[in-house]
Design a binder for these strands. Structure first.
Length: 284
DNA sequence: CTAGGATCCTGTCAGC
DNA sequence: TGCTGACAGGATCCTA
């Protein structure tokens, strides 16, 4: 899925395009993509506030209900409005398809005739409608750890120590330990800290842990600054893509290519059940 | 409690 | 060309 930087990119895009628009219609094409209260309760409501917690996107309505969206692996948010189109999330051909597409699971119409589409090829993602209390009690949000820039070096270290036998990558991916990190940024941060993602936490020095936390902040901030790794803005006719991967990625999906630091060939293996990219020299 | 694997789903791609 | 299995930017549930 979209990781934290992609969700932040979506949040900013939606803020720019649909803040204060009134929902006049909602269509649920896949029942399992909608959770919580009845969808009819969004009708006639304006979207008055956007927020993001880790990889979760929050939209507050004028009746004080919240729509919480989690895009999981393949979710996308696409706005088609008057002269302006915006899409962010999982990158695939659906970005350019006619909306709704065969992967559209939910869509909204606003009273100015513009639309918001929630696309999700694998149907793991969802939008949940809930009141304030329900939001507070939501299991995912309740258990979500602080974001990397809100976590002190001491706290990160303390959280690591609870999982001495886990590979460091599994810990970075665990949203109860640190929020927002996914497969791309876990690999990239490990490269920055010069550590193999499969190394167990107990083998990691305090100094390396500090480098990891700083690395996570660095790669995610760089990605946010470049529009996430997967954003397209159709205002520009060619549909410019978020540029993080091309511009900054050192290892992710670069297996077979040369390390930009030492020239060794980047390898791919499996750690914590996920495809994992690393430089065998720099991260030996 | 922890750690690891299966699972939810659809689609694509490499390798016969 | 057609099939088959592996894999995919995530999180939860189940098992040991």
């Amino acid at each position: 899925m979209p990781e934290l930087p992609e969700v932040e990119t979506i949040k900013r895009g939606l803020e720019r395009l649909i803040l204060h628009k009134k929902i006049s219609r909602v269509e649920i094409l896949n029942e399992k993509s909608w959770r919580g209260m009845d969808a009819e309760r969004v009708l006639g409501q304006e979207i008055v506030e956007f927020d993001r917690r880790g990889k979760a996107l929050l939209m507050r309505l004028s009746n004080n209900l919240w729509m919480m969206a989690h895009l999981r692996m393949t979710g996308q948010m696409i706005v088609v409005g008057a002269g302006e189109k915006f899409a962010a999330g999982h990158p695939d051909g659906n970005f350019t398809a006619e909306m709704p597409s065969r992967h559209t699971r939910i869509w909204f119409e606003f009273d100015d005739g513009s639309h918001l589409y929630f696309n999700d090829l694998r149907k793991f993602g969802f939008i949940k409608l809930t009141d304030e209390l329900g939001l507070q009690e939501d299991d995912f949000l309740r258990k979500l750890a602080p974001e990397p820039w809100d976590m002190s070096s001491d706290e990160f270290w303390a959280r690591l120590q609870k999982h001495p036998n886990s590979p460091i990558k599994a810990v970075l991916l665990n949203q109860h330990i640190i929020a927002g990190v996914g497969n791309i940024y876990a690999d990239e941060a490990c490269f920055i800290a010069r550590i193999f993602p499969g190394v167990k936490v107990r083998e990691i020095s305090r100094e390396t842990a500090d480098k990891l936390l700083a690395g996570v902040c660095e790669v995610m901030q760089a990605s946010i600054d470049s529009g996430g790794s997967t954003m397209k803005d159709y205002v520009r006719a060619d549909g410019t893509k978020g540029s993080y991967l091309e511009k900054f990625a050192q290892v992710f999906r670069r297996d077979g290519d040369c390390c930009r630091v030492c020239g060794a060939k980047i390898l791919k293996t499996r750690v914590a059940g996920r495809g994992t990219h690393y430089c065998p020299e720099c991260q030996g």
